[in-house]
Design a binder for these strands. Sequence first.
DNA 1: ACCGATCCTG
DNA 2: CAGGATCGGT
Length: 643
Amino acid sequence: MDGRTGSEQDRDRVTSGHSQGLKLEPCFQTDSLLPSPSASLISQLLSHPMVGRSLDPTIIFPSSQAVALPQDYKCGASPGEGAQALAFPRTRAPAPVPCAAGRDQLSDQHLQDQLSSQHLRAKRARVESIIQGMSLLPTPQAFGTSLEAAFGHERERGGEMPRESKRKPRVPQQATGAAGQAAPMAGSPHAEGCQQLKEQLCFLEQQLRRLQEKFSQVCDSGDTAQTQEGAEKAHPLPEKPGDRPDEDSATATSDARKAPLWKSVLEVRGLEEEEDSGDTGGLPSAARVLSQALKHELAGVTSQVVDSVLKTVWPKAANHLLQQHRSLPVPGPDVRREYFAAGKCRKPLAKPSPRNAPGSLGSPQAEALSGASGKSLGSHAGSFSSKGVRKPSQVPSMGYSLWGSSSRGSPSALERGPLEPLDLHWGTVKLRSSVVRQQQQQHPLPLSPADMESLALLPAGRDGCGELQAAMDGVPFTATHMQEALTPGHLKKAKLMFFFTRYPSSTLLKTYFLDVQFSRCITSQLIKWFSNFREFYYIQVEKFARQALVEGVVDAGTLRVSRDSELFRALNMHYNKGNDFEVPGRFLEVASLTLREFFSAIRAGKDADPSWKKPIYKIISKLDSNIPEGFKAAGCSQELLRS
DNA sequence: ACCGATCCTG
DNA sequence: CAGGATCGGT
């Protein structure tokens, strides 16, 4: 491949890659975020036809009446969204498992026949069908997926945007739309939204109660029916509880035939002995447990909903609450809309950086150099806690320590290295500062890949409750925390990323700017940034190469960019103003090599050739290294601004 | 013709 | 750093 490899690949993916990149977006792997194995219960409830029917998406919409049809629902920005939202019913289940439906019919007949043995059977069938009705979950994350699909949730509302703006690459109107979208959120529809969500919850509760009633009715009249069930199940295959992938949805559905949901519920809760133990005790206790489980879960979900609504409606207040009530870290949405441009995508950059911490500018280089060598991991912890305190008014911050400097030889093992896991609650981390910087030297931060991952997982302004957040996304005028424009924070982040990659593909950029609504404009702006970065970079290197030549350097091999070299100073000043980032050693290597290449080329007189730099570009373009996952972390763009 | 990267300019 | 022109590749 030539030097344009990156762009070549990119070109292939630009069209499809948009969604693809975002598909990787971890935020919606809700299952991992759900606290307990019983989490599926509510999902099952919601999937139940009865419940589902009353769960109209329009309830949440701040239109008018709760159960009103979405006709008066006006989608502020994207009609497609609205259309999808209306598509909600399509996910409604076409009735549970076939056999369950069959049984249901059968049971009705038999109930009327009043034949005792069949009677019992029938009741059992009913119980099963009820529960199975609740259970019909195609996927483990039924709740999330169904709701997501239901509300036409999609990450990129600009799905068609690139195409749209293709016509006018120059003066894209996205920003205008963005402003229009963001502005109205100041209104009161949120109160309404809250109210209606509340109503929805009440409704849910009612449905749940009805279900429980129905359930216990059936149970009461025929609790002995369980006998047979128990026997039946005991017989065929005395499978060990262990060797089966229990709550797995796949097995759950396929097993549904012989193992009704409540059994798996019991298993999950480790209560199956109770069921096996007695003929008489079986169902009632199952009912109790189920009931408790449902209640418990409902309570949990309720609070989650409240949290998420509150957070969306009232980010600041929610922040505090969330921090008080949960251990689950939720980054403050910190929705700064002031950067939304009225006309052009570059507007946001008009006003550079607000506050710069004066302190950190001290004597960066000296600092970076002297204190550099390896320090114990223990002191990391120390610095974490000491710096962990933040003013209440501050939103939670991402630590600068997120990214360790990768380097030394093994680019492949860059941030995959054996990092000591540190029991560190990221929400409390606010690392800026020389202390950390020094400790970072030579040592990637003690965050395990898992930690990184979880950091990256934390969505900007979206909490773990992806389903409901998804629902919220359907609400017009809701603050979606996707930035429709690049902010100074993004610029800073991009600059830091330059230390790792000089030639990022647009796909890569999309991967690392997850909080940005990518459009053609945004993409090209980012690309342009990196182009500018490169320009500056090469100019500087060339300058120093010539200087070295003038100074009589003979051996290109002796040229080396170190942290105290002037070249480094210039580059660092440009990309890492404030010096709050530890420049990866790898970058120094790349810079050194670039310098040598320029030096050699110039010395060889190649600079007579108008395109003499191209071979060098080609070489350098292959030296990109992986960017630490920490850069994907939500809120890091904003956070970088504070430094 | 289109696209991306670079060059040049402000 | 952005806009526009230009170059080179498909």
